[in-house]
Design a protein around this nucleic acid. Structure first.
Lengths: 214, 214
DNA sequence: CTAGAATTTTTCCAATCGGTCAAAAAAAAT
DNA sequence: ATTTTTTTTGACCGATTGGAAAAATTCTAG
């Protein structure tokens, strides 16, 4: 018997399903209230079980939160990983933007959980940001810089370019309520994501300068 | 004697100062942990006083939080209010971006408090978003559309333009930790805001299309 | 100096928090 | 059917929470 007093490693299919159910409920709660603002009771109720029962599957609040974060960061960076150095620069960036926007549309809770963690100062997350994340961004920034050197794209700071893509796309998940309020009832349908996609295409491709017919 | 059992309206100069001291401390705490994740004890300690003493000045947690939010939304929108329909479009927008960026640099806690509130779904804030905020944005969106009609600026959705300015500028306050991690030790000085300003100028003015010498 | 008001501290409370434990119940294995 | 294992429940614990009450202190005016 190992000395590890941990959550029963998922043997049964049922166990895995229950754990998934709990993580799903926890995502709901954590993404709204943050880690400290969420309670185990809340999560348990959202998952339709009692608190001790939930604690049978995850032995602490942290143990529910941590795997959520880990999983999310990973899928969150997938679109950036797929940025292809051998592709056409502008279409590559364009499709990166589109994929990030789709993630904000399809996984807003994940985006908000991530944002909550950043606002807290990302405790117990620092290392990942400075290694995994930084390495990936460094790599892709180099790719982008390569495109600039070839004259295929306007010269600019690739890091801030990536930041601006993150910011503009995630905004539609994290500030959803504000966006809906400002757009009003009529324009708050799912169509707002298509409008956003159109706008971001134009912004990143041409900016605001009036079209020159030179 | 009014029936309102409220916090002693600030008569003394000392009272006003203490209240300000508390709000300052509360801003620190709330901006990091959100409303539910913050405790009165934390705030009291940050303000250098005991919890009951703090409760002498503000009778509840909500009573500390609410005025902070109200004040922030107001100053937060100042730059947009100043967007001048009679000014030159591109410089107007450029200086709006710059001011928003400066606010992220100089008042990051305010930005984070606001972000925290949005993530929660902005309870007890809905009305303000749908009236004050929406009205202002509608007004300024009309101004921008006017500029487009005159051909002084490229045609695009003015609402999403405003969203993208909010997103890109506030990102440097709300995701500060991520930004620092990615930029690395060397580039995490205050200079990053100048880099950001340069980049955003280019993004919004010209986008990423390679400079045409047509 | 002294009465009165303003401020601060001490003590306390009920509710909620994260989490434990043993017993009950349900499933699975024999 | 019965034993064994897994899952669920109910009762409970110490710590922390938001907040009240009242005593103790400090400040201020006369």
């Amino acid at each position: 018997m190992s000395a590890d007093a941990e959550t029963p490693r998922p043997v049964t299919r049922i166990q895995r399903e229950k754990q998934e159910l709990i993580l799903e409920a926890a995502l709901d709660v954590f993404s709204q209230h943050g880690f400290r603002g969420s309670t185990i009771d809340q999560i348990a109720e959202a998952a339709g079980m009692s608190k001790p029962n939930l604690l049978y599957y995850f032995k602490s609040k942290e143990d529910i939160h941590a795997p959520l974060l880990a999983r999310i960061l990973d899928t969150w960076l997938d679109p950036l990983r797929d940025l292809d150095a051998d592709g056409d620069p502008l279409p590559e960036i364009q499709s990166y933007i589109r994929r990030k926007l789709e993630m904000s549309r399809d996984f807003p809770r994940e985006s908000r959980l991530f944002a909550n963690e950043m606002l807290r100062g990302a405790p117990g997350f620092h290392d990942v940001l400075h290694t995994e994340l930084k390495n990936l961004v460094d790599e892709k920034a180099a790719v982008i810089r390569g495109w600039m050197a070839e004259g295929k794209i306007a010269k600019c700071d690739p890091y801030h370019l990536i930041f601006s893509i993150w910011a503009t796309t995630q905004h539609y998940a994290d500030f959803d309520i504000q966006v809906r309020a400002v757009l009003g009832r009529e324009r708050s349908g799912e169509g707002r994501f298509e409008d956003a996609a159109r706008f971001l295409d134009q912004l990143f491709l041409h900016g605001l300068s009036p079209a020159k017919k030179a």
